[in-house]
Design a protein around this nucleic acid. Structure first.
Length: 487
DNA sequence: ATGTGC
């Protein structure tokens, strides 16, 4: 008999280990799949995640199945951790299925330092980073951009940073799409969005965004770890942030326009938050071009923060950063929609692959993996919480057949920010991390520390275990925090 | 996530 899992009015049936399916019924165009262990499934049984996932199967052109990654939880319309491959010719594109923070993502920078080099100097380092990298809501960035600067960043991405001395050539070759989305259309980004972004170039923002100095605690795959330049005890830097007010404004601009101009499509959807523009429409093209421009902005944002971090390390350790092996390992987006060609049940199709809180995980040999990682598969960076550490995976062979080339993006929230602030007090969390785990955290707001307390997250080990077992993203290395700055 | 609302 088929094993089932009941959650409210949703019944999932087990397809095989870690694969659960909501069979199509009513206006569902395809099944919905959750990739999770039973404990992870139980953690999304009582919120809107499964209902939202089911809703996404109503989107025109959704292909084969809608998916929820192991770290999934409820979001705006479309679950965080959601993946949908939607036909780019006959389907649609949905801003809510990309997320408000366009190209929210992570980059990891290597160093040649070991934990011994930073131990005892955590406080000095965390203070220096906090002084150098703007955090929190509002304006102020590493760079104060004027209007032409914003245009250049939207158009050319990290190439702009290279020209301006904020990057080296190797940074481009170790970034998804070499740091530039060619489909970017800066004219499709509103003046209001550009104005908001102008003084936010090189700023972390708030919420779950952070910069963390970490040490590698484990390697699981010696050959891939070596190819990625990772070894136990090594110090690395992880940067998690997105496109700030510029991306947020762009998402909002297009949601409102799409709701108005494609009200007929919206009328057939179960949730207003899923508003989508039909493929081929002017608005679909404009949103795609604007989103790609925001992607470039976010890559530059992370680039500026990384380069500033190099300067901080040079200062603190009194050596040129080039002599400390401070190279970009990889930068990967986890809030994005991309035109990609995939093998589907209907044959080869060009899809808008929507990944919202999901990471692309292309395996070895895929032509879109940067040359540096063509033989190992794309690095997949999965940040965990301040108390649990993070993972580096490599894109798995099964990702292309199972998940449109995707895997998880983090530990996944267990509770809302409001609930977190009722459960935790920022100062206590900070003290506990420092005294218990030698993790030095500095934030511009105590509330943010409470909202991001380790206890508000699911078990990242369990999330990664599922990814690895399914063969969509394979374990390479694990890291643990040393010091962390956040909004 | 966000000049912390739709």
């Amino acid at each position: 008999m088929t094993e089932t899992f009941e959650a409210g009015d949703v019944t999932l049936r087990r397809v095989r280990e870690f694969v659960w399916e909501i069979p199509p019924e009513g206006d569902m165009r395809v099944p919905a799949r959750v990739l999770a262990s039973r404990p992870l499934l139980e953690q999304i049984a009582d919120d809107r995640t499964l209902e939202q996932l089911r809703n996404t199967t109503h989107l025109p052109g959704v292909t084969d199945y809608a998916l929820c990654m192991p770290d999934g939880h409820q979001g705006y319309g479309f679950p965080v951790g959601g993946v949908a491959g939607i036909d780019a010719e006959n389907g649609c594109i949905s801003p809510g299925a990309v997320g408000y923070d366009i190209n929210c993502g992570v980059r990891m920078m290597r160093t040649d330092l070991t934990y011994d080099d930073v131990r005892g100097r955590e406080e000095e380092l965390v203070e220096a980073l906090f002084d150098a990298v703007p955090t929190g809501l509002g304006g102020g960035g590493v760079v104060q951009g004027d209007a032409p600067t914003v245009e250049a960043v939207l158009e050319r991405g990290v190439e702009w940073a290279l020209e301006e001395g904020w990057a080296v050539e190797d940074d481009l070759t170790h970034c998804e799409d070499e740091g530039r989305r060619p489909d970017a259309d800066p004219d499709a980004v509103s003046q209001k969005a550009k104005d908001r972004g102008r003084n936010q170039l090189g700023s972390l923002g708030s919420g779950n965004h952070f910069l963390e100095v970490q040490r590698v605690t484990d390697t699981f795959d010696a050959a891939t770890a070596e190819a990625y330049g990772l070894a136990e005890d090594q110090v690395v830097v992880l940067i998690h942030c997105g496109s700030r007010g510029l991306g947020h404004q762009t998402c909002n601009d297009y949601l409102r326009r799409i709701e108005q101009e494609h009200a007929d499509l919206l009328a057939d959807l179960p949730d207003r938050e899923l508003a989508a523009a039909p493929a081929g429409s002017e608005l679909a093209e404009r949103y795609y071009g604007a989103m790609c421009a925001c992607i470039n902005f976010a890559w530059v944002n992370r680039q500026l923060i990384m380069h500033r971090t190099r300067e901080v390390f040079a200062d603190v350790f009194d050596r040129p950063w080039e002599e400390m092996g401070m190279e970009l390992l990889y930068d990967v987006a986890h809030n994005i929609a991309k035109k990609e060609v995939h093998e589907t049940s209907a044959g080869e199709r060009e899809l808008y692959v929507h990944r919202k809180g999901a990471t692309r995980a292309f395996p070895a040999g895929h032509p879109e993996v940067p040359a540096a990682y063509r033989d190992t598969g794309q690095p997949v960076i999965i940040p965990g919480s301040m108390g649990a550490g993070s993972y580096v995976l490599s894109g798995g062979e099964a990702s292309l057949s199972e998940t449109f080339g995707s895997t998880a993006h983090g530990a996944g929230r267990l509770m809302s920010r409001t609930q977190a602030k009722q459960e935790f007090w920022g100062g206590d969390v900070q003290d506990g991390l420092r005294e218990g785990q030698k993790v030095y955290v500095k934030a511009s707001s105590g509330a943010t520390i409470a909202e991001e307390a380790p206890g508000v997250y699911k078990d990242v080990d369990e999330v990664v275990r599922v990814s690895d077992a399914l063969g969509i993203g394979d374990k390479v290395a694990r890291t643990f925090p040393v010091c962390n700055i956040k909004g």
